[in-house]
Write a protein that binds this DNA or RNA. Structure first.
Lengths: 210, 210
DNA sequence: CAATTAATCAAACGATTGATTAATTCATGT
DNA sequence: ACATGAATTAATCAATCGTTTGATTAATTG
């Protein structure tokens, strides 16, 4: 077989990368073979080397892309929070968006988590654009202009990230165990998280309007 | 070379497993070769198959051993907490022991964390003996006889686990960033964690006695 | 239209993998 | 003293790994 009637280099390149992201995210880099990636993306084995130089090059491209996704999500999360007026709605937005992030960017979180385990730290060059937009937005909850959450609030904020990560690990079963919403639909779990965050961080329950 | 003057089957077996734990913890199972394990433990390649049947068998043995370590640590942590009288000292013990656990059982936490990423959940058969002893002990903080922490306290307790995990990832640099103890010695970081936990969970700072 | 380039694949490469085999040495019981 | 079994190794195996090569075909250019 030679060049097919419909040959699209850019499309093929991203198709390979997207397949690789999924596989790297759920199996890890070392446990994923280039043949597996080629098969999953419907191209021949040689395409991996052709488009990304090496398996390591493809992996790096995947990690970069996922960092981009998380950075973009962080900006969007920060923006959504900055559009809210009351501390209560800011907090609710934060929890809701974190929950949404965990569901929609599961592979990104998993892949970065694996990379974090391998390296022992976040990529220092990416620390700023993936974390700061979110952290800065939280400052409005407490009238702090420095962009840093108050001392007492770092642990709860870490909790949000922790729950996001846990959710991304497909451990919904354990998330329900923790929240106590064993048989409830996913909406109830989210509601519970919002309620808990309110009581814990703001000191009062959310206004039960809707 | 045949049987050496000092041949000790049991010692060799555990030596192989201990070397394997370290390598599996920092590199992951797929990225670690049996030759690497053999070299690290000073024996020939064939010993891995001889003592553990296969690489997978060795890996399973490592995971089991680390689950045992964590279960034992959970019991000890629960015991230490149950010997304290005031809520304040109970909480301080919990934070201190979690911190100590993260430093002394770094490989165990890393290995189980990798397994968690691979499987998507904790081994259901191990959930009880690794988590319950600790969770039960926390109930005394609130006079709850059910062994379950009150609703509002699950997130902070998760925070402790989260920080333990983060610390185990060698990301002390980021732990200092979070706590704000950038240049302080490790004791100051621990002190800060205890103080934060007090204000957050109990609502008042620790009595500054010592 | 002829020549060149771009996109793709099948096949093969050498290296490395986890696993096995056969041999060797030490200890032990009779 | 000698046979038996446990502990260990060097050498080797087939399979699989990531990568490269050479060929083939569609598009592009002049």
């Amino acid at each position: 077989m030679g060049r097919p009637i419909q040959a699209n280099a850019e499309a093929t390149r991203t198709r390979i990368r997207e397949s690789a992201v999924k596989l790297f995210a759920v199996q890890g880099q070392a446990a994923t073979t280039t043949r597996e990636i080629a098969r999953a993306s419907g191209v021949s084995l040689a395409m991996v080397s052709h488009y990304f130089g090496s398996k390591q090059g493809l992996y790096t491209a995947c990690v970069d892309a996922m960092y981009d996704e998380l950075a973009e999500a962080s900006v969007r999360l920060g923006g959504a929070m900055s559009h809210e007026a009351s501390p209560s709605s800011i907090l609710e937005t934060a929890v809701r968006e974190c929950f949404h992030l965990a569901r929609t960017r599961r592979d990104a979180i998993r892949l970065i988590l694996r990379k974090l385990l391998d390296d022992g730290e976040l990529d220092p060059r990416r620390r700023e654009d993936t974390l700061l937009p979110f952290l800065n937005a939280t400052s409005r909850l407490f009238g702090d202009a420095t962009g840093r959450p108050a001392e007492e609030l770092r642990l709860p904020l870490q909790s949000l990230v922790y729950l996001t990560v846990r959710h991304a690990l497909n451990t919904e079963k354990e998330l329900r165990l923790i929240t106590g919403c064993n048989d409830d639909p996913e909406d109830a779990v989210l509601k519970h998280l919002i309620d808990t965050a309110h009581r814990l961080i703001l000191g009062f329950p959310p206004e039960t309007l809707s």
